[in-house]
């Protein structure tokens, strides 16, 4: 059981987050709730990418006085490349979220509602 937890708990968490976000996106009609769901999918995907860069005996990828990343010619740190990609993806996520919220505010000012079905009926 402890072996399962050590190896799989992060993957299970990221998968659960993606599932929850997808459920929110599929079942809600309020634009704000859809953006909340997309944000949760974003968190789950970032967690997945960082998880596959990790193994149970790894150390953090920063050289300090007590933290050696290379032992006997073998790298023992976590993979730094996916971490750097996720670092930038988080900032992009904030920018796109802000843009989506601004468009949602404009939609509310034009139609007076945030329900996608009512907006569709009003457009017809």
């Amino acid at each position: 059981m402890i072996d399962f937890l050590q190896n799989w708990i992060y993957l299970t968490g990221s998968m659960a987050l993606v599932g929850i976000g997808l459920y929110i996106v599929l079942t809600n009609t309020n634009i704000f709730r859809i953006i909340v769901g997309l944000n949760i999918i974003d968190s789950g995907t970032n967690l997945f990418i960082v998880t596959i860069a990790w193994h149970p005996k790894s150390v953090m990828p920063i050289y300090t006085a007590t933290n050696n990343l290379v032992v006997n010619g073998h790298v023992i740190s976590a993979d730094p490349l996916p971490q750097s990609l996720v670092l930038t993806a988080i900032v992009i996520g904030l920018g796109t979220t802000a843009l989506a919220l601004a468009i949602a505010v404009k939609i509310y000012q034009k139609y007076g509602t945030l329900d996608v079905r009512k907006i569709k009926e009003e457009d017809r």
């Binding site: 190896n7 992060y10 990790w54 193994h55 990828p61 990343l69 790298v75 023992i76 993979d79 490349l81």
Partner: peptide, 14 residues
């Protein structure tokens, strides 16, 4: 998720 960093390009970065 026991990936081997020594087989990837990240080895050179580290």
């Amino acid at each position: 998720n026991e990936v081997n960093v020594n087989n990837t390009v990240s080895r050179f970065y580290v």
